[in-house]
């Protein structure tokens, strides 16, 4: 792939530039105020995970960054560019890719069409061969209707289709939800591989055991605010706190 040079840059981006910087992000669904001032950042090459209970505002945070939530305020900078007022299609064309929790596989499109749907936003995306190498199952199902795939295959398709576009910043919303352990493992490998190739990833996860296998840093979201943050190396030390936050 053309970006092999950047792909071998050091992972865990300790000194990398900030890809995403979110300051005092607030968001509303109609009349209800969901995000009350979210602050966090993601550096180049990092895998950052947002943890938190159901309804804490993790998904809304991703959607707000993506520009899907209509009513929002505060500052979102992507590679230094303010995007908090941009439309979601222009945000996507800057190189932000989003894989929604419900996966969003289109029933009226076959697998090939689903895979080829997101337009290329810049060079440097994975080729189809590379994608089939990551997800061999998809290759055999190209002509099936998108929603006829199993849950795991649908999740792979949902991730696969945003790898083609050349976006270097991926937002994955609960990619392991409802999947069998062996498939979770495969998705874990994929994320590790993407990280190695220099992708920057913002992950939302309930399953922090899974997150701990891929993440560099964590933020904890509660009641629409980021209330804590720590690195993967500090995970053990924060275990007790985490159990309280997540109520597990």
């Amino acid at each position: 792939m053309p970006e092999t040079k950047t792909a071998t840059r050091p992972a865990a981006g300790a000194g990398g530039a900030q890809v995403l910087s979110v300051k005092d992000l607030q968001a509303w669904y109609g009349e209800s105020h969901i995000l009350h001032g979210i602050n966090f950042h993601v550096k180049e090459g990092e895998v950052v995970t947002l943890l938190g209970r159901n309804g804490a505002g993790k998904t809304t945070t991703l959607k707000s960054v993506m520009g899907i939530i209509g009513k929002r305020s505060g500052s979102v900078q992507f590679n230094g560019k303010e995007i908090s007022r941009a439309s979601s299609d222009s945000i996507a064309r800057l190189g932000v890719a989003f894989c929604p929790e419900e996966r969003g596989i289109f029933a009226s499109l076959d697998v090939r069409e689903n895979l080829l749907l997101p337009p290329i936003v810049s060079s440097g995306g994975l080729s189809l061969d590379q994608i089939f190498e990551l997800f061999p199952n998809l290759k055999d199902r190209l002509n099936s209707q998108g929603t006829k795939l199993s849950g795991g295959e649908q999740q792979m398709l949902a991730i696969a289709r945003i790898l083609r576009t050349g976006a270097r910043f991926l937002m994955l919303d609960e990619p392991t939800e409802g999947l069998a352990p062996v498939i979770i493992q495969q998705i874990g490998h994929t994320i590790a591989r993407l990280k190695k190739e220099g992708f920057t990833i913002l992950l939302v996860e309930q399953n922090f055991r899974f997150a701990s296998t891929v993440a560099d840093r964590y933020y904890v979201v509660e009641h629409g605010k980021v209330i804590d943050g720590f690195a993967n190396s500090e995970l053990e030390a924060n275990m007790d706190k985490l159990h309280t936050y997540l109520g597990v």
Binding site: M66, G67, I68, S87, S88, D89, S90, I91, A92, R93, A97, F98, P100, G104, F106, A107, S108, L109, E113, L117, P118, P119, V121, I162, T165
Partner: peptide, 15 residues
Amino acid sequence: RAATENPTLVRAFGI
């Protein structure tokens, strides 16, 4: 066809 099903997501893909 995709936008008929889910316009929000299609837009979030950059269309």
